[in-house]
Design a binder for these strands. Structure first.
Lengths: 343, 343
DNA sequence: TATATTAATGTTAGCGCTAACATATATCAA
DNA sequence: TTGATATATGTTAGCGCTAACATTAATATA
């Protein structure tokens, strides 16, 4: 029993199975892979014996022959942000259906680590890469050179434009504009904005949407009320503290934010200052992550279909892998307003 | 430039680099892998040319030779549960430091999918497996047979005992006992329990801890007050509704739960019934996930060091891979009480 | 000077598998 | 009966790399 096992790796090989059966490796290979021209009887015997011997095909060897690994790499900037696990869930579902396996890496918003991971995944010969870039990315040239190697890439959520790489995200600009318009329609006039990093699409697009809404309604854009908060709770909190420190006449009556974590941090600051939401100051987020419905007061925000983003990105990547001439697309999913009590 | 690229895969091979240099593949291989007996001058030239040609070593081929893939597989029951992304973050950090790559699969609490994933990962020849089993697991024999193949396994959070496989978790029984004792010390006497699935360690151990605390304080164990809620919000909510439907004299004055999602669901039910927490009914959770501090009222719960669980599990697995005679351990991390306002 | 030792490089074989070609046997039409 | 066709199986070579052994050149030792 254990004697059938390969000395080197501990697993049974095709050769061992074929020897036991008195057949050539090729016939056994054909039988196990549903190739034509195998006697049904032979096939049955092969399957039985392979099963008995607990043969597991070695995909490493298969991959070397076929130069396909049925493996994709996913680069996440921060798995701690509730948005991303949902995206991963979507990706995993699609990828699993297609019998691919998923390598996960977490860059922790560190571009150097992101580069290292991408190179490691290339060495592992992944068939494709699903990337959401870290914030502190500096050189586009890296992605250009990666792209030149011919590996298939799809960006999601945080995209880089102009590289000829497909992207799956939400219509950030429009959604950001809508939620700002909603604040305006509620009668708020001094609206502040906690912005994300401008280098990344989501940072830029959401800020643009905010600005558009203001100018559409002839509201002045007070640059003192636009503060970069990054994408975290802490960033949101300290940005809000700066706003609260402004003189009374400048202080905003409402705050729009680049994402929910940032809004949650801001809420903390507002509460600590002893102010009431939305009476003293209204606030809205962007993401609709798990905490948004639970915080007091429940947060008005934009629902980003995270799971859907993951699914679509994975689908697009698999198509790009399968079909050499797959077009480059900019897929924008619809984000929708979720009106709760914080505004 | 592009002409140096391999026709088959689009990437440059060792052979191509060696031909360009007029050296044998072996010398180039030695130079690139920091092996001894290479002329420093040669090494420098090799590194330069390899870099110029954008050579990326093919780990698939390396793995076939070495029968090591520097790859581990992680099986998560539900990445949507906030606890698990944190665990994954811990795993990823350790694994990355050791230059391993991580395959992530999400079983969605489906044991059939879990088995499929494990088999797929075995075919991919991962060096080890980090597993948190799904709830609906029925046959232990599967794990027994997997273990026989010699693959290294470490369980985390949800373990199966008696298989001779290491496990990293928290001291569930004791922590559950402590939080129940805390409720008792606050004067509650009719304490209900929303329990998890008993087949899984966390379900059993936490319930045991709860029971121990009651019997230590000579409180009667009313089996009507122990309801299986599963591990989700919905389960918690409907279990709580059953408790609220009890006759007045039976109705609990406090509820302990198997985990935070379950507690959060129960809180919803209590609020919908128009009752006040903790005045009408107190509630405590178990996990300390992101929402626990934010819900109204903030949830008293047990802090499970998720990130630490991930790190320790990954460390143990890497040690088990490296060291053939690594001992089988049951690592219990300390969970600590987090007292907030729900009790 | 002859010989042992070390350093630098090369050659061969094989990891586990499959594509592509080769062979043997059975089946069929003319 | 003959060769053509289909079916079932086998053989060879090679995917990209490295371990193990082989060779050559350079240096040290007696």
């Amino acid at each position: 029993m254990a004697s059938e096992q390969n000395k080197r790796t501990g697993s049974v090989t095709l050769k061992e199975v074929s020897e036991k059966l008195g057949l050539s490796m090729m016939t056994v290979s054909r039988a196990l892979n549903d190739k034509p021209n195998v006697n049904p009887e032979t096939k049955k015997r092969v399957l039985e014996v392979a099963n008995e011997m607990r043969y597991t095909p070695n995909h490493v060897a298969k991959s070397l022959v076929s130069s396909k690994t049925y493996t994709i790499g996913v680069i996440i900037p921060e798995i701690g942000h509730a948005f991303f696990p949902e995206v991963v869930r979507g990706i995993e579902e699609i990828v699993d259906q297609a019998n691919y396996q998923l390598f996960l890496t977490n860059s922790s918003e560190d571009f150097e680590k992101e580069k290292r991971s991408i190179n490691a995944l290339r060495a592992k010969r992944v068939d494709g890469l699903l990337i959401s870039t870290s914030i502190k990315r500096s050189d586009y040239s890296f992605f250009e050179s990666i792209k030149k190697t011919g590996i298939k890439i799809v960006f999601f959520d945080r995209c880089i434009q102009g590289l000829g790489i497909s992207c799956v995200g939400v219509n950030d600009r429009i959604a950001s504009k809508q939620i700002t318009q909603y604040l305006i329609s509620q009668g708020y006039t001094k609206i502040a904005y906690l912005s994300g990093p401008p280098e990344v699409t989501i940072g830029k697009d959401r800020l643009d949407g905010f600005k558009e809404a203001l100018s559409d309604h002839q509201l002045e854009l007070n640059s003192n009320l636009i503060i970069e908060s990054g994408l975290t709770e802490n960033g949101g909190k300290s940005a809000m503290e700066k706003l609260l420190a402004l003189a009374d006449h400048e202080r905003p009556d409402a705050v729009a934010t680049v994402n929910d974590p940032s809004a949650l941090g801001a809420i903390e600051a507002i509460k600590e200052a002893g102010l009431k939401i939305p009476d003293d100051i209204a606030i809205v987020g962007f993401t609709n992550e798990v905490r948004a419905s639970i915080v007091q007061p429940p947060l008005t925000t934009v629902n980003q279909p995270a799971y859907e983003v993951g699914k679509r990105a994975a689908q697009k990547l698999l198509q790009t892998i399968k079909n050499e001439s797959e077009s480059i697309e900019n897929i924008e999913l619809n984000a929708t307003l979720v009106i709760r009590e914080s505004s």
